[in-house]
Amino acid sequence: MDLSPQTCLFNLIMMCLAIPARVVTVQQDKACVDFGGVQREVNVTLVKAKVGDYVLVHAGYAIQVLDEEEALETLRLWNEILEAEPPQQ
């Protein structure tokens, strides 16, 4: 499957309410994160984020670290479900 971690994780969640961003630097409870080119400081008190992680940001606070393996697994499962199960009547 043609998915780099960046394109995969950056586009997992749409809309402004919670946006995924890549952690660029971390200093205590603050992190500089990259929203696909736009960098901003966010608060990381609520998560254990390290440089390179993708975090879900809501109203200036990272609320979760995203799971890349689960993202790829979701795509794999979707395809599996569609291919494995015959149409039901």
């Binding site: 499957m1 998915l3 960046q6 394109t7 995969c8 950056f10 586009n11 997992l12 696909g36 080119g37 795509l75 979707w78 395809n79 479900i81 569609l82 199960e85 149409p87 039901q88 009547q89």
Partner: peptide
């Protein structure tokens, strides 16, 4: 950064919609 098309894939969406039709019939 280009959008990842997989979570909005048109073909996959049509196939899921068909699955919903089949199961909900």
């Amino acid at each position: 950064m280009a959008a990842n098309p997989k979570f909005r894939d048109r073909d996959l969406s049509k196939r899921v919609a068909q699955k919903i039709q089949d199961v909900a019939a």
